[in-house]
Design a protein around this nucleic acid. Structure first.
Lengths: 256, 256
DNA sequence: CAAAAACGTTGATGTTGATCAATCCGCAAG
DNA sequence: CTTGCGGATTGATCAACATCAACGTTTTTG
């Protein structure tokens, strides 16, 4: 499903609210209200406690980097709260955004192949992550079948997500890309119990453009056009989806 | 490394030739001359024999499909000989190629996330694959640490490969894309012990274009231009790399 | 072998989105 | 309140690539 790279997350229908109470470094996966979105899906209490022992957490301020390209790979990170971008510096020194990630998503899997990260991960707002040391995660998933399966599904989901983006970049036109982007964000907000119809963008027009293979002016123009057509409301970073079906209709519109 | 999505495969320096002798359905990973490229990297003899028991093989004629989008996911496949493409049919019914795969590479990992394949895999020449039933692979990799690690590296490598392609599609111009494509093919041929400087393309101009987000005419024009500039030799699908450095120089050429 | 189909090349023209540039808005700091 | 600055908007122009079209070449098929 093209505009829907979150795979099985879609089927999680229950509302999930995102408060945050504990302040200690240890995190209880068994208590976490994101556990139905996260690696812990389907684990029994006993196994959840084993996860608890492995996981610590870390807070990041807006703009702080969780890891950088070239850093040695130590752990995967589950986002508890906040919003991240991942990006790569190309040979010519241009930044290209490879993804935006929100609560319940796992980042860092690019580092497994080389023992070094290939991209940067930056918090776009104050955020908190669960640190899962990779050697421990490997060991644990050798012992817990459902953890192993869940982990593999997350990796595969990332592959499918990337391929959706390849299709977007390879075959869609500017306005289609931006409609797909907005619908995808909206969908992911819904799954997390937030409003699907209004939200704040955490990234700049330039970062959106980088992600979608467009220039910031093109992004801005598309927003304005959608606004004029009554499809969305735009006030800087505050977006309202006024006509989701209208946006979807833009996607099926075959160009030739 | 942008033009180099095969990750650690790069470091395998020894020559690997690709004969094929046995004809029975059972395959001996322990005897396979691709085992240093494949999942079996780093396994000891004992563990290799466990792999042997799991794997069967299948031959495909040119044009045959190994699996289709929507098929239920049963197994991963290691390519023993031949050449494949994977593609997705977009909503509008357009085909988009998501990758070309050759000997030693693993395909099918997109299916793990949903228990169904999201893309088609088609043999572009007569080919042979090793079938690795996924439930058995999971079980085996819970018992064999180095198999588990190798499997995870393959999945991660696929993620990194896809991200390289995202960058190509998001930030490179037509001729850069095509130069990167040729250099990548050349590199992968070298790793497998084939000539890196001359080879047959197994895919059409249209398939190349689909993969690179370009139209077939644009691909054809770029080939002609590179030919005129003495960078490559082109005779239909037979390509010679005459000036690899010249091609590489095209990549660093910042547009603005 | 002949005919058809698939694939590839090349040219002329058109459209999309990039580029260049001016202006505006919102927010933070003094 | 004013100033400065990063971000956003909007307009004018341009370049890259798509599209349309004609023709050539190779492969497949009966």
């Amino acid at each position: 499903m093209l505009i829907n790279p979150q795979g099985k997350l879609q089927s999680v229908d229950q509302k999930v609210t995102i408060p945050l109470t504990s302040n200690n470094m240890r995190v209880a996966c068994s208590q976490c209200n994101l556990r139905e979105l996260c690696l812990a899906v389907g684990l029994d209490d006993d196994d959840l406690h084993k996860l608890d022992d492995m996981v610590t957490k870390r807070k990041l301020k807006r703009g702080q980097q969780l890891y950088r390209a070239g850093d040695s790979f130590e752990a995967l990170y589950a986002i508890r709260t906040g919003f991240f971008k991942t990006d790569i510096l190309t040979e010519e020194g241009l930044e290209q955004v490879t993804g935006f990630q929100m609560a319940g998503e796992i980042i860092g899997m690019d580092g497994i192949s080389n023992d070094h990260h290939v991209c940067n991960a930056t918090a776009l707002e104050d955020s908190e992550v669960c640190i899962m040391p990779y050697d421990q995660l490997e060991e644990l998933s050798r012992g817990i079948k459902s953890l192993q399966q869940q982990f593999h599904k997350f990796m595969s989901r990332e592959i499918v997500r990337d391929q959706s983006l390849m299709i977007l970049l390879g075959s869609m036109r500017a306005e289609e890309r931006i409609a797909a982007f907005l619908l995808n964000l909206s969908q992911r907000m819904r799954v997390r119990g937030y409003s699907a119809s209004e939200f704040h963008l955490r990234m700049t027009r330039e970062e959106i453009g980088s992600y979608l293979g467009l220039k910031l002016e093109t992004v801005s123009r598309a927003f304005s056009k959608f606004h004029d057509e009554g499809l969305i409301g735009v006030q800087q970073k505050y977006i309202r989806i006024l006509n989701a079906d209208g946006l979807k209709a833009l996607l099926n519109h075959t160009p030739s």
